[in-house]
């Protein structure tokens, strides 16, 4: 272990500037990757939150009796496309309205429960059914108006997708740059150690003896860069915890019921980044050794 560390230090010292450039570029890559994962998870958590809110509100005409509304509610509850239905009576609507406008007594004086319509708040199992359901509801007798959040959710989804695509492209581009920089660094090491490697070969060094230090160097560069980015991610996790952001936890689309606390999430991300860093370093160094070390 001492020998490996000694070799590593000597190589890094010899190519100080190239090493710094390498760590810099790779750190940017892993910062982008970590941030992208945070953004994806955050936006998916927000999307899930939006989906869990009342998605369709059906407002009824004043002459449509409560009995009729409740009958309609029962029919909706049997519909396989619907997750839940909640009845909001005129009085409950007034209470909600009063709560929202509690600082405007003049407005409240002029409003009575009879003015506000009774409504049903409907959540669909699949957000894609919202438009069809809304059209069906609007054709039902006694329905005054149907409002739904499809536009907001659609817009949110669109911009989330734009962020994902830009993020992935950035991560891919920087991964490629990092990979190339690792190869360039190790190529310089191989060339500068040309005579040393030749002597080692002639006095009976095994392939592994010559190649391993170069591979360790690549892995070390990946490790240092991903460690720096990982620490930044943990700091984001700590800030989220301090400001009680995403208190309920962060989630991913493909893990429907799993919510992870931001701090735990950032620690998992730290481990993931370290793993990715070492892997990128390993791949880069293997390529450099294969391409430039004629052994």
């Amino acid at each position: 272990m001492g020998k490996i560390w000694k070799n590593l230090k000597a190589n890094i010292k010899r190519e100080k500037l190239l090493t710094i450039a390498n760590v810099f570029v790779m750190t940017i890559t892993f910062l982008l990757l970590g941030t992208l994962i945070f953004v994806i998870s955050g936006s998916q958590t927000a999307l899930r939150y939006l989906e869990q809110q009342a998605q369709i509100s059906i407002f009824f005409k004043d002459d449509f009796s409560e009995e009729n509304i409740l009958g309609f509610k029962s029919r909706l509850e049997e519909d396989g496309r619907i997750a839940s239905v909640k009845y909001v009576s005129k009085n409950e609507a007034f209470e909600i309205f009063s709560q929202i406008n509690k600082d405007e007594p003049v407005l409240l004086e002029n409003i009575s429960p009879s003015i506000l319509p009774a409504s049903l708040e409907v959540k669909a199992l699949n957000i894609g059914d919202l438009r069809v359901l809304a059209e069906e509801f609007s054709q039902v007798d006694g329905v005054e108006e149907v409002r739904f959040f499809e536009d907001i959710i659609d817009r949110f989804k669109f911009w989330s997708n734009v962020i994902y695509i830009i993020g992935f492209v950035l991560v891919a581009v920087f991964s490629l740059i990092s990979y190339s920089v690792i190869i360039a660094t190790l190529r310089t090491t191989i060339h500068s150690k040309g005579i040393e490697l030749e002597i080692m070969k002639l006095v009976g060094a095994s392939n592994a003896y010559v190649k391993n230090p170069l591979v360790y160097q690549g892995v070390f560069l990946g490790f240092v860069s991903s460690f720096i980015a990982g620490v930044a991610m943990v700091m984001i996790g700590v800030i989220m915890k301090l400001y009680n952001m995403f208190d309920y936890g962060l989630t991913f689309g493909f893990l429907p019921r799993l919510y992870i606390q931001p701090l735990v999430f950032s620690l998992l991300l730290f481990v993931f980044l370290i793993f990715s860093g070492c892997l990128l370093g390993l791949l880069g160094s293997y390529t450099a050794v294969k391409r430039y070390l004629k052994y």
């Binding site: 005579i195 002597i199 070969k201 002639l202 006095v203 009976g204 060094a205 095994s206 392939n207 003896y209």
Partner: peptide
């Protein structure tokens, strides 16, 4: 075999005209 060449080379000492010292 390539993976045993180093063992073979350890049985042969080589001295070069240009010394090959670091």
């Amino acid at each position: 075999p390539q993976e045993h060449v180093h063992d073979y080379r350890r049985k042969i000492g080589v001295v070069f005209q240009d010394f090959k010292l670091l």
